[in-house]
Simulated scan of single mutants.
Amino acid sequence: MPSTPEAPSTSGPAAAVGEGKVTPADAPLLEAVRRYPEARAQGDDSIVVIHREPAVGAGEFAWMPDDRSYCLAVVRDGRASLACKPLPKSWARIGIRLVTKAGPFSGQAGATGTRTVFFAVVDGGHGPYQYAGSAAPGPDAGPVRDATAVFASGRTLSLLTYERPTADLPPRSGPDICSADNAVCFPALDAYVG
């Protein structure tokens, strides 16, 4: 029996909160992102800035056209990669909607080798997030960066990025990432969907 398609979500696009809002300094990074056809319809008010380093041509941006899908843009050296995908319909770990590898990238200025950027979507605005637990993330691990997206309904999601040297990725282990209030924790290197 064929399945019936899901009705479109009426949640509308998410908006950035606080430091996640686009600023004039983000223009060079956004220009790299807007070269993609999928990015052309996004206004600045619906882009969530997770991480920005315009001086080195690096950053991560996301937008959510509705509460069931996302687009993530990773900019390195003024070049962007873009992925637009649906969020999973169900999830085994409470509060975590997605943890995925955004892809391997060349290291930024001062860094060597290839690095893997991870992206997570977490229910609620429980930030800031950081590494926790007894397992240290390693000296070359990038910090956890997060931003909050809010929908017109009031629903909030935390959008996180963090990176590791690609050669330093042990399978399904490593430190946890937890919210400031410890309401949400998850293994940093467990890519649940990707």
Rank of each mutant, 00 (worst) to 15 (best):
S3C: 14
T4D: 15
E6T: 10
A7E: 14
A7D: 11
T10P: 02
A14S: 10
A15N: 08
A16S: 11
V17W: 01
K21W: 00
V22L: 06
T23Y: 00
P24I: 02
P24D: 13
P28Y: 05
P28K: 07
L29T: 12
A32D: 09
A39W: 01
D45M: 04
S46H: 14
H51I: 00
R52T: 01
D66P: 07
Y70V: 04
L72M: 13
A73F: 05
A73S: 15
V74Q: 14
R76V: 14
D77Y: 00
D77S: 10
G78Q: 13
A80M: 09
I94H: 12
I96F: 01
R97F: 01
R97W: 04
K101M: 14
G103F: 03
P104L: 14
S106Q: 14
A109K: 15
F118Y: 15
F118R: 10
F118S: 10
F119S: 12
A120I: 01
V121I: 09
V121E: 00
D123C: 08
G124D: 10
G124K: 05
G124P: 04
H126R: 13
P128K: 01
Y129V: 01
A135H: 08
P137W: 03
D140S: 12
A141C: 01
G142Q: 07
G142D: 07
V144C: 03
T148L: 12
R155M: 11
L157Y: 14
L157S: 08
Y162R: 00
E163G: 13
A167R: 12
D168Y: 03
L169V: 04
P170T: 12
R172H: 13
S173D: 09
I177Q: 05
F186S: 08
A188D: 09
D190Q: 09
